[in-house]
């Protein structure tokens, strides 16, 4: 049985380790490195643009950058203010 395990079932776990590392590090580098600044800059500028037309608070604009191995997503979540709160 052990021999069968060895021959068929037990693929090495190193490839999985490698893949998990690549994904988590891409994410962490985005948070710690220069792309972290990118998120901050985007947050400020988008907030400024939205604030020109809508009355929004800082925490109503949320930005999330998610970097995966194959696909990265930039998520922008803007909470609309209640009716009649249009700024100008």
């Amino acid at each position: 049985m052990r021999l069968l395990d060895f021959l068929f079932a037990r693929r090495g776990t190193a490839p999985l380790a490698r893949e998990r590392l690549q994904i988590i590090l891409a994410h962490e580098r985005a948070l710690n490195g220069k792309s972290g600044d990118l998120v901050r800059v985007l947050q400020e500028e988008i907030l400024a643009v939205v604030a020109r037309h809508l009355k929004v608070e800082r925490e109503m604009v949320q930005i999330k950058l998610d970097r995966g191995a194959g696909i990265s997503t930039l998520e922008i979540d803007i909470q609309m203010p209640a009716e009649g709160a249009a700024a100008h």
Binding site: R11, G12, T13, A14, P15, A17, R18, L21
Partner: peptide, 8 residues
């Protein structure tokens, strides 16, 4: 394949 390789 049990341990990360140098190249990895």
């Amino acid at each position: 394949g049990e341990m990360l390789k140098t190249e990895d």
